[in-house]
Design a protein around this nucleic acid. Structure first.
Lengths: 110, 110
DNA sequence: GCATCATATGACAATACCATCATGTGTCAA
DNA sequence: TTGACACATGATGGTATTGTCATATGATGC
């Protein structure tokens, strides 16, 4: 049973194929991807992310929880707010990379 | 309604976010990813892919159809056989890239 | 403490996806 | 043309995922 959300500490027991699939599953949702793209511009709190993505607070919190459980984003509390950021440069690079290549492919199709 | 399978010709009307999501959805399944990883070694026919992935013929055909509809793989008929290959280097590069970074991240977690 | 702000969590209906079984189609050899 | 081979397709049951509503939790100021 493959589940979207997984505990990062379990990942070592997964095969590479499973790990890679889980990783892509995280990116394979418009809400989550939208959040990640927003975070490429730098860290932001939940309200800020809601504003920038147009998603509801509940949805953003849910998806941030998913992304956080999988160590894709990290969180930092500041008073009542929680700021989220991409956990490392990998996500940033990988998403950017795919975007570039997708764009390139689009052009190629014209 | 976001659907995994989409007609590649429709993609121009999608936003970048949608297109990127659809792209990742294609990779977010263990069977498809397994097929794509197999095809990184070069083109192969359905039976060959079944052998290398351990997946059933029906499943492989189904997933190849999905990947083909989205222009991720291309097909070539040779007699009774159909050979499939990655449509371009993008997929190869992107998957390899994610694999490398995932590996790197794993090491970082030790 | 109490109200409020900011975020998190639980439960759930709707939907999407997956893998399988059964069957269909196209190709070749005899 | 028939049979076997190689692959494709349709239908379907089971399951996973999605987004929403309602509600809970934690922090701050008064």
């Amino acid at each position: 049973m493959m589940v979207l959300s997984y505990d990062a500490s379990v990942m070592k027991t997964n095969t590479t194929l499973e790990a890679l699939t889980l990783f892509y599953k995280l990116l394979a949702n418009e809400s989550r991807l939208s959040i990640l793209l927003a975070l490429r511009d730098g860290e932001d709190n939940v309200a800020g992310i809601c504003g920038r993505t147009g998603l509801s607070q509940t949805l953003v919190s849910h998806q941030l929880a998913v992304l956080h459980r999988s160590d894709v984003v990290r969180s930092r509390r500041d008073g009542r707010r929680t700021f989220y950021a991409l956990a490392d440069k990998h996500i940033d690079i990988i998403v950017g990379f795919a975007l570039d290549h997708l764009a390139e492919k689009e052009v190629g199709h014209e």
